[in-house]
Simulated assay, not measured.
Amino acid sequence: MKKGKKWLIAGLLAGSLVGLSSPSFAAFWNVTGDTGVHDPSIIKEGNSWYTFSTGQGIQVLKSDNGTQWYRVPQIFLTPPAWWKTYVPKQTTNDVWAPDIQEYNGRVWLYYSISSFGSNQSAIGLASASSIGAGQWRDDGLVLRTTTSDNYNAIDPNLVIDASGEPWLVFGSYWSGIKLTKIDKNTMKPTGSITSIAARPSNSGAIEGPSMVYRNGYYYLFASIDSCCKGVDSTYKIVYGRSKNITGPFVDKNGVDMLSGGGTILDTGNDKWKGPGGQDIYGTNIIARHAYDAEDNGNPKLLISDLNWDSSGWPKY
């Protein structure tokens, strides 16, 4: 991000992204308009781009070209009645860290409900034939955690493995990031839960997982340290990889992410503080939020090309 202006000029000369019909920026996309987001998930449908993000009823931004963004109606106008059954402290329509993915001819929207500092949480699911069509179906509870669990049911991300099978990666704080197999008919968990990343209790948070498969490896991206504090946020994005979707995920130094490993991808800069809540689209685009030091620390949308080095590690 520190080289955004240089990348922007290079992009204008270089043309569009390889293999994708998208804006002609080689790395840092010059997004404008309404870019206020937290924990964005990005997707393209037809000629339109969308981000789904934390906020009232799940906030949605749309772009007709990937650069100029505007707000469109939220997904839930009122909280579904079942939310309070699993998260009694859920007294508003505030929804966290949604994940939007297309799979098997349908669009799936995972999301989480919780309250700060509690792991009495739930992951829910909505779906539609397409984003443009709307008419979202409430598919109910996916999984839950209570105060007796040592992990937290928030920050879901749908992952499709090399065989085309769906998995759900999720989690935050407590004992870290988890993974579970998903039934392709119900799109809900089947089988056990596996731990794939954690940090020592005195080392801060790990959360917001996003996983992709590329050239024989599964890449796990996560946000570490502190979010939600404006310019005082210390969020940063880390990654590791594994030949197997269930791990072990190791960083560039060979350290297991279950033991606190994770190579840093993004720590922000003087303008953009605490980048995190990242989402990988395909394998070549990364969206995330960061806090704008020039606008009272408000969280905003950042999008970049995600490049890969000769050894198969991600980079900007």
Rank of each mutant, 00 (worst) to 15 (best):
A97W: 13
G297W: 09
G36K: 15
A97Y: 12
Q74R: 14
S242V: 12
G124D: 07
D232K: 15
L77Y: 10
I58F: 06
K229L: 13
D232I: 01
P299M: 04
A293T: 14
A153I: 13
G105A: 10
G132I: 03
K44R: 05
P40S: 03
S210K: 06
Y110W: 13
N307P: 00
T67D: 02
Y103W: 13
S24Y: 06
L220K: 12
G4K: 09
T35I: 15
A287T: 10
L301Q: 01
K236H: 09
N202C: 05
W313Q: 01
L17Q: 00
S115A: 15
D292Y: 08
P248D: 09
Y86D: 03
S112G: 15
Y50R: 00
G208R: 03
F170N: 09
A222M: 11
L265E: 00
A122C: 04
M1D: 02
T283Q: 06
K89T: 07
S121F: 06
D139G: 09
L258M: 13
T234K: 03
W108M: 13
P40I: 06
R137L: 14
E165H: 15
L141M: 11
M211V: 10
S130A: 07
T54A: 02
I264R: 05
T186Y: 08
S53P: 01
L12Q: 04
A198V: 05
I193K: 07
D305V: 11
N253A: 14
E207V: 07
N185K: 14
V72G: 04
N157G: 08
S118I: 09
N253V: 00
G4A: 14
I131S: 03
Y219G: 04
P73C: 09
L141H: 07
L13D: 00
N47R: 03
T194N: 14
K84S: 14
T54N: 02
K236F: 05
A197K: 02
D256A: 03
S192G: 15
R144Q: 13
Y218K: 01
G261F: 07
M1F: 12
R71H: 00
P166C: 09
G164E: 12
G230M: 04
F52K: 01
D149C: 14
G33Q: 04
S121M: 03
L258P: 00
G277E: 09
D64S: 10
F170G: 07
G230Y: 04
P23M: 00
Q68C: 05
G204W: 08
G204T: 11
F52Y: 13
Q90S: 15
I193A: 10
A198P: 01
P156Q: 02
A26F: 11
W96R: 05
N30D: 14
P80K: 13
D309T: 05
G277N: 11
N30Q: 12
G11K: 14
G277Q: 11
